[in-house]
Design a protein around this nucleic acid. Structure first.
Lengths: 108, 108
DNA sequence: TACTATACATCGTTTTTCAAGGTATGTCAA
DNA sequence: TTGACATACCTTGAAAAACGATGTATAGTA
């Protein structure tokens, strides 16, 4: 139905983080948990395929970097990614608004 | 991750409607569209299996009724359904709150 | 040395939802 | 009366999202 919302509720979260600054996968997981007070405990089996898909779609670019003895894959939001972020944000607002409209609407 | 939200976001809408009064399937589709101003255009391929599942889970009971020359299948929220509605409502609030926390949180 | 945290990844399964199609009745206009 | 449209129910097969499980490897710490 509102096919614009569901298959991207997690995309929105990731895109939003990357809209603030470049991050690597593991960092996103911990940052989402921190901000949501552990409501979002994104699994790696969810995150990495998601990042790869967004990269393939041209929304993200990636670079490898060695830091603190570890190799990290930093993701960066492309111009296209910023557009997608805007869309996903609007989708979310539309969806959340519609749910609340249903929950609060006066019965017909 | 937030496995409590997704696989029941539509359940919440349906349970909520039935929390107000008994309704039949087709009516739910139109009522959701009305309240959400067409954000929710639930497909019958989505709705009916959903209703059947909730009935099998004991959240709904059903009765057939003839009205206006048509046979309608009215659904009613059971006690168990009311519990489920409460849970789903809390899940939604928790989820929506977490999304907004991520979107508004100050960067680490 | 062993455990934990960090950091990446893949694979198979489950679940939700959709698109498409099917059946049947009532209403209304051409 | 014929056709179109709304109402009202249903099923099936396919796609996609997310998860759980699992694997690899390194760094730090007890």
């Amino acid at each position: 139905m509102a096919r614009e919302r569901e298959p991207g509720s997690l995309d929105l979260l990731i895109l939003h983080l990357l809209g603030e600054r470049d991050m690597y996968g593991y960092e996103m997981v911990t940052e989402l948990a921190r901000r949501s007070e552990d409501v979002f405990k994104m699994k790696e089996g969810t995150l990495y395929p998601l990042l790869h898909r967004l990269e393939k779609e041209g929304a993200l670019s990636a670079r490898e970097e060695r830091a603190e003895g570890r190799t990290r894959r930093y993701y960066h939001l492309t111009r296209r990614g910023r557009e997608l972020l805007r869309e996903r944000t609007e989708d979310w607002e539309r969806y959340a608004g519609a749910v609340n409209a249903v929950l609060c609407a006066p019965p017909a």
